[in-house]
């Protein structure tokens, strides 16, 4: 875990690219209890006007949050985490799925060894799927 004193405004968290495949969404349906058809059934997703099956917004939020918990080491260091869902992650039924690229940067140093981190999450082509994503992380 990085130390508070070593971190500056502008310090970047290591970027990560997370593959998002149908298999991940099925697991998340079971783990979260959200088995809405649009997250696994292409026929229903298209019938309601979506281009294909889409990831749960909460799956995308959880996956993006991994750059915080991986950076902190102890997931208990994440004190606050909030996002706006700007567009869905469309997950095709192929061997690759979607690719979620997540970046983060320290935006402010707060008291109590806490830092405010801003996150971005985009899919291939650069579309941002989360906006206003911010977290408060406590560092040693």
């Amino acid at each position: 875990m990085p130390a508070y004193d070593e971190v500056e405004v502008g310090t970047e968290l290591p970027e990560q690219v997370f593959p998002v495949q149908r298999h991940n969404l099925i697991l998340y349906c079971g783990a979260s209890g959200d088995s809405n058809l649009i997250h696994w059934n292409e026929r229903i997703a298209k019938a309601v006007g979506l281009p294909d099956v889409i990831a749960h917004g909460m799956f995308t939020m959880a996956e993006a949050g991994r750059i915080l918990t991986d950076w902190a080491g102890d997931p208990g260091a994440v004190l606050e985490y909030g996002v706006r869902f700007s567009r869905p992650v469309v997950v095709p039924d192929d061997d690759k799925g979607a690719q979620l690229t997540v970046r983060g940067k320290v935006e402010e140093k707060l008291d109590g060894n806490r830092v405010l981190v801003g996150l971005t999450a985009s899919v291939e082509g650069g579309s941002q799927v989360l906006t206003g994503a911010r977290a408060v992380v406590r560092l040693p």
Binding site: A62, E63, G65, Y81
Partner: peptide, 29 residues
């Protein structure tokens, strides 16, 4: 598992205790 996170603090009570938690903790969301 569903978010592909292998962090031992989610899985191993000993690792969680070493980090100062009474038992395994849950992911932020």
């Amino acid at each position: 598992d569903a978010i592909g996170d292998q962090n031992p603090i989610y899985r191993d009570p000993a690792a969680a205790k070493a980090a100062g938690h009474p038992d395994v903790i849950a992911p932020p969301t």
